[in-house]
Simulated scan of single mutants.
Amino acid sequence: MTDVIRLLTRAQKLLSAATDDAMRPHGVRIGQNLLLEALWQDDGLTPGDLAARMGVTTPTVVNTAARMEAAGLLDRRPDPHDGRLVRLYLTPLARAAQQPIEDARRRIADHALATLTPTELHRLTRALEKIVKQMSP
């Protein structure tokens, strides 16, 4: 069993490094892409909304958003209807990074999965879904 954990960890590290390298030219770091993906779908979410969608804590989103704002990827603005809330909005820089990042991630996935048969890919996907469900709180 430890071989499976070792292999999963190694695969995750290799995929993360490749993804981080592909996103870095666009000013995006690994992890930030998940926040961007949510905002590319639905701009103007609150940190709490993002945390719920991403399965992380609100402070994690707040800290990530602060770094992204400093990098020029996000703007934080007060909610127009509830002054207690802050909403996160994409900047033009973040919008311009969407297609190149999506293309790069697709190329990485294609490369990583190129040697798997459709049956192997299906089984891997199902197995990973089960692991995620089992390990989720």
Rank of each mutant, 00 (worst) to 15 (best):
M1T: 14
V4S: 08
L7P: 01
L8S: 10
L8K: 12
R10I: 07
A11K: 04
K13E: 14
A17C: 04
T19A: 15
D20A: 15
D21P: 04
A22R: 03
M23V: 07
M23A: 07
M23N: 00
H26Q: 10
G27Y: 10
G27M: 09
V28P: 00
R29W: 09
I30Q: 05
G31R: 04
Q32N: 00
L34G: 10
L34A: 14
L34W: 03
W40F: 07
W40I: 01
W40R: 00
D42N: 04
D43Y: 05
D43P: 02
L45F: 04
L45G: 06
D49Y: 06
L50I: 13
L50G: 05
L50W: 10
A52F: 12
A52V: 11
R53Q: 09
R53W: 07
R53D: 00
V56D: 00
V56P: 00
T58E: 15
P59E: 03
V61D: 02
T64C: 11
T64P: 00
A65F: 10
R67D: 08
E69V: 12
A71S: 12
L73P: 03
L73C: 06
R76K: 14
P78D: 04
P78W: 07
D79S: 09
P80N: 05
H81R: 12
D82Q: 05
R84Y: 06
R87N: 02
R87T: 02
Y89D: 01
L90E: 09
T91N: 07
P92I: 08
L93M: 14
L93I: 10
A94G: 02
A97R: 01
P100V: 03
E102M: 12
D103Q: 14
A104S: 06
A104Q: 03
R105N: 02
R105V: 14
R105L: 14
R105K: 14
R107F: 03
I108F: 02
A109T: 10
D110L: 10
D110C: 05
H111Q: 11
L113H: 13
A114R: 06
T115C: 05
L116S: 01
P118Y: 08
P118I: 04
T119N: 05
T119V: 10
E120Y: 05
L121T: 07
H122G: 04
R123F: 10
T125V: 08
T125Y: 14
R126E: 05
A127H: 09
A127V: 06
L128H: 03
K130E: 12
I131N: 01
K133I: 10
Q134S: 11
M135F: 15
M135Y: 15
P137L: 08
P137K: 06
